[in-house]
Design a protein around this nucleic acid. Structure first.
Lengths: 224, 224
DNA sequence: TACAACCTGACAAACGTTTGTTCAACACAT
DNA sequence: ATGTGTTGAACAAACGTTTGTCAGGTTGTA
C-alpha cells in the first residue's frame, strides 16, 4: 500500500477552505505544477483537505476528485477505496507529525522541556498549513468503524513517543501516567477545534498546557 | 459497497467491529414503557444513540427510526429534518449537562473544589449511560457546516458556566484563563474517545485533570 | 530504424445502492 | 367525524464503485 510517508507536501498552499463544501465548482489546474506532479500525490492532498474539513462521511469522492483536477473514477486507479484513501491520508499525517515531534525533542535533555517541545510541535503541526494533519484530530469520533483498527495501529507508534516522554517525568504518585498522557493528547488535539489565527500561536498553546501541569505534576522536592 | 475487511492494502484483516452499525436489526419494544411514552422522546433517544455512535453524516434516518421502533417516515411528523433532529438532540444533551454541572457545584464554596466537581460531573455525564451527551464531544469536527451556528449558540451558555468557574480561580499571571478553559473542556470532552469501562471511573478522570492543574495554576502563596 | 507489445495514468459514463424526504392512505382514539 | 399519529411505498438526488476505453510512453524484437 505504501502510504507514501514521503514528504507529503509539507508547505504547499492550502486553498481557501471554508468549512465543508469546497464544492466541485472549479476544476482549475493547480497552477503550481500542472501535470508534472504526481497525480496520486495531488489526490492525496485534496483528500486531506476534504477529510479534514468534512470528516470521513462528510467528504465525498467527487469533491476530492474535482479538487485534485480529476474525475471521481480516476481515484480508483490509485486507491482501492474511500477507506484506503483515508487510511493513506491518515498514515501520511501521522508520519509528518512523528517527524515534527522527533525533530523538536532532539538534543533536549530535561524531560519536562522535552515534553513541552513535543507538545508545541504537535500543536503547531496540527494547526499548521498542511491539510494532512487535519485528519488526525477529528478521527476520534469513531464514526469509521471498520477502519478503526488500521487507524489505531498507525497511531500507536506516535502515541508511544508520548508515553516514553511522559515515562521519564517521575510524576507524583497520585497521578496516573496513562491518564496524564491521554489528557494531554486529547487537549492538544482539541486545539484543532478552537484554534484560530489571530490568537495565541499554536506552539505557544501547546507549551502553555505543559506549563500548567509542570510544577504540580513533578515530585521534584525542590519545587513543590 | 460492503466495506467489509476488503484488504485496503494494509493487509490486516479488519475485525467485525460493528462500532457504528447498531443496525436496524432489532425492533424490540424498549420494555421500558411501550407506547405510553412519547414516541417523540423515543425517537430523540434513538437518534442520540445513533448520532453518538456514528456522527452526523454517519447516522441515517432509517436506522434511527428502526431503533425507535418506528418507520423512517414517521420521524418527519415529529421533526422537520435530520438537521432539526440533531439540533434537538444536541440541545437536550446540553440541558442535561447543564443541570448535572449546576447540581454538582451547588453548595460548594472553594473555587477549585467547584471546578473539580464540575469537571467530575461533566465527565460522568459524558461517559454515563445516557446516550444523549454522546453527541456533545464529537461535534467538534465541524463536519456539519450549516448547523454550526445553532450548535454553538446552544453551547455558549454551557461553556460560560465554566468561564465563570474559572474566572474565580485567580490564576497566575502567565496563564490565560481562556486557554485554560479551552484546554480543560477539550480534555474533558476527549475522554469520550478513550474512556472505557473497567478503568478509572469517569468522574475520577475528570477530577484528576483538575488536580493536575490545581496547585500549579493557583497563585496561592501558601502552596506554590 | 521500425514496429509491435505492453504498461501507465487518466477519462467518461454508467451502475446499483443508500440517502433524506414526501405523501396519500390508514388506524384509533376522542 | 375529526384530529393525531403512523404507515409503507415511492421519489430524486447523491453516493461509492465498476467498467471499458484511450492516448502516450517505454520496452523488446527484428
Amino acid at each position: 500500500m505504501q502510504v507514501a510517508a514521503t514528504a507529503v507536501g509539507g508547505g504547499l498552499p492550502v486553498p481557501p477552505m471554508e468549512f465543508c463544501q469546497l464544492k466541485a465548482t472549479e476544476t482549475i489546474r493547480p497552477a503550481d505544477d500542472p501535470h508534472t506532479r504526481n497525480k496520486r500525490q495531488q489526490i492525496l492532498e485534496a483528500a486531506a483537505r476534504q477529510f479534514s474539513a468534512c470528516g470521513f462521511h462528510g467528504a465525498n469522492m467527487r469533491d476530492v476528485a474535482a479538487a485534485a483536477g480529476v474525475l471521481a473514477g480516476s481515484i480508483y486507479y490509485h486507491f482501492e477505496s474511500k477507506d484506503a484513501l483515508f487510511v493513506a491520508v491518515h498514515g501520511a499525517a501521522i508520519d509528518m507529525m512523528t517527524n515534527a515531534v522527533r525533530a523538536a525533542v532532539a538534543g533536549i535533555a530535561d524531560p519536562w522541556d522535552r515534553l513541552e517541545e513535543a507538545a508545541a510541535a504537535h500543536c503547531e503541526a496540527l494547526n499548521g498549513d498542511s491539510a494532512f494533519v487535519g485528519v488526525i484530530a477529528p478521527i476520534f469520533p469513531v464514526t469509521i468503524g471498520a477502519l478503526r483498527s488500521q487507524l489505531t495501529a498507525q497511531r500507536d507508534a506516535y502515541e508511544s513517543m508520548f508515553s516514553d516522554l511522559i515515562g521519564k517525568l517521575e510524576l507524583e504518585a497520585d497521578i496516573d501516567p496513562k491518564i496524564f498522557r491521554l489528557h494531554v493528547l486529547t487537549a492538544l488535539n482539541g486545539t484543532k477545534f478552537w484554534y484560530g489565527p489571530g490568537g495565541m500561536a499554536p506552539s505557544e498553546i501547546g507549551r502553555q498546557l505543559i506549563r500548567m501541569l509542570r510544577r504540580r505534576a513533578t515530585r521534584d522536592p525542590g519545587i513543590v
